[in-house]
Design a protein around this nucleic acid. Structure first.
Lengths: 355, 355
DNA sequence: TTGTAGGCGTTATCAG
DNA sequence: CTGATAACGCCTACAA
């Protein structure tokens, strides 16, 4: 415990002096340079321990031109999906010895552009970016000169690396699941009219494909607009649809928050789920399993997305990634719960998905 | 758009050369030094714009001995309360021009100690720490020689700055709320047997005080243990209590996740809420308003906690905080919703709490 | 196997 | 008001 209090201000010089070696040798020890005489190494390590020395990362970064940190830009952490994603990314980065710095864009165009070109960019070696407000019309803005990996298909075929699951196929699978339980009037909550490349558009495309396969038309009355995918907007869209007297026997929420909002309204109006209306969401956030009734959903393989994105970004930073831009498609799975298939068991715990 | 591509590598030297001034003048402009001739300032700003220059933070930090970043250590972002807290802290820090670096401790003792003494500590100027696993027995570990603000009362009267709401009073208010609706058999979900200073102990104390005021005894059968405050553990505790045949007419979940887990079990067993059993949680996370039925809760003033903690930490870093350790108690409010007071209105949106 | 010199981009000091 | 110059702490040559 002796001299270990004040590590602030302890420099390699001090360590070198105590150990009776040069500063370079200390540096070598710290960086794991192999050719050091064991005795020397020991003395250096003892000195480091004694002084409580830590490398000054600012200095190292300045010298090396790297920071050892990567950025993660998401709309907001209050949205459970992004909180869980951030959790996974932080863990994945940690496994690679890298620190994550989170930025919230609030899904605002301005903030998202700032993330790409602003000041903060310089604190990190690269960026994992889940854009929401920016679209194909902003393609040019994504042509950045630093390592970046995009999450989601918002900028389809854009000028950057991509990690995403297949929104179209996953949405088709979810819709099929509803069709298989005999539903025919399936509402879509969260559509973005006029959009062509965002998650909303892609998921809606999957929905339409599944309907087409079943020989069903797409009824515009069943498309519930919701700009932001929050619980509140899901509730509002659902309410509007019911108020309009639209006949509905199932709901596909384009994410779980929307679906939970819809559930909430159904519940408030005395509509039974899944007897009268079945509900499925998307993202499989933890909430889903604890909704009443437990919400069926589509699990996007969060862990896989996170680790893949981190590794791809680090490869890009290290310069070991392929020259052309990479697009990785990850797996997904439909997770049926009571909201579509009815009570399966009277268990206390909600589902096998929760750890 | 001309020369704005390659900002990497643009230095003050370059800006100074273009603007025809010395490097120091550029520095002055950037740092808002007041005594600069307007013409000079303009030329410098034009050069900065033209080259797309950004200060190199590593260099600045090295020079200034600061990093411009603060750490935020929480158990995990998957827990909605901490995700929302992180959201608020990031925003609060942003308002002060500071970057936040999040660390997840997984509520493990080892990880929490690492946060206090590990390598990463040196990337930040200070730490906002919400400990869970460490208790009074670890008091010594909290005697750190860097700026730190603790959230929550876990280390009561410990050797560090504190920001917290009054757990005891808030819990008492929540319990009173249940008593006022005529409940008498109030289950407590999330208790930690033997604990004396943690959130569990404090909130339980408030519960006991409220019961005492109402002339009611504390029935051990109504105390539901739950180590981790997750939805799943809340569900399990509730299920155990019901399985044991304990008579219950209300539930106080020590946080919302526990309460939501309990709701889930009640729902699965056909117990009506709030008719047969009223339920209230704690934290007022966004989920609460969208539970079925909407969950009453205690709002801890998250924004206030976040901003206060950030400001206190920055004051500590700047050396402007008082010598002795500060303890700030923030406000709280009971938010009644359907889970305790029954259906109030058939609205689509769930509550005024959601933005 | 270890030491020496130099510079990464900023800001602070001190002249001018 | 502005300019030269010296650190900040580290790492990469290059020498020894």
């Amino acid at each position: 415990m002796a001299g270990r209090r004040r590590q602030a201000g302890v420099t390699m010089q001090d360590v070198a002096a105590i150990a009776g070696v040069s500063i370079k040798t200390v540096s070598n020890v710290i960086n794991g340079y192999p050719y050091i005489r064991p005795g020397t190494k020991e003395r250096v390590e003892a000195a480091i321990e004694q002084l409580g020395y830590r490398v000054n990362l600012s200095a190292r970064n300045l010298r090396q031109g790297r920071t050892g940190m990567i950025g993660l830009a998401v709309p907001e952490l209050s949205l459970p999906y992004f909180a869980e994603l951030a959790d996974s990314v932080i863990r994945a980065a940690e496994r690679r010895g890298v620190i994550v710095l989170i930025e919230q864009t609030n899904a605002s165009r301005e903030r998202e552009l700032e993330v790409l070109h602003g000041q903060r960019r310089h604190v990190t070696d690269g960026l994992i970016f889940s854009p929401l407000a920016l679209g194909t019309e902003d393609r040019a803005a994504f042509a950045v000169d630093f390592p970046m990996v995009l999450l989601g298909e918002r900028i389809f075929g854009g000028p950057a690396d991509h990690v995403t699951m297949s929104n179209v196929e996953a949405a088709r699978a979810a819709t099929r699941h509803l069709l298989e339980t005999g539903r025919r009037r399936i509402a879509l909550i969260g559509s973005h009219e006029g959009e062509t490349v965002g998650s909303a558009a892609l998921r809606q495309r999957g929905y339409e494909q599944a309907l087409a396969e079943a020989g069903l038309p797409v009824d515009p009355a069943l498309l519930g607009e919701a700009g932001l995918w929050h619980r509140s907007t899901g509730a509002e869209a659902m309410a509007r649809m019911l108020d309009a007297g639209t006949e509905v026997d199932a709901v596909f929420g384009l994410n779980d928050a929307l679906a939970i909002g819809a559930l909430h309204v159904l519940h408030a109006r005395g509509v039974t789920v899944p007897d009268e209306v079945a509900v499925i969401g998307f993202d499989d956030i933890e909430d889903a399993a604890y909704a009443s009734p437990p919400l069926s959903s589509v699990a996007p393989g969060r862990e896989q997305i996170a680790q893949t994105a981190v590794d791809l970004l680090l490869a890009r930073i290290a310069g070991t990634a392929p020259d052309e831009h990479v697009e990785v498609i990850t797996d997904f799975a439909v997770v049926p719960r009571e909201s579509t298939v009815g009570a399966v068991r009277p268990a206390a715990a909600a589902s096998p998905v929760v750890a």
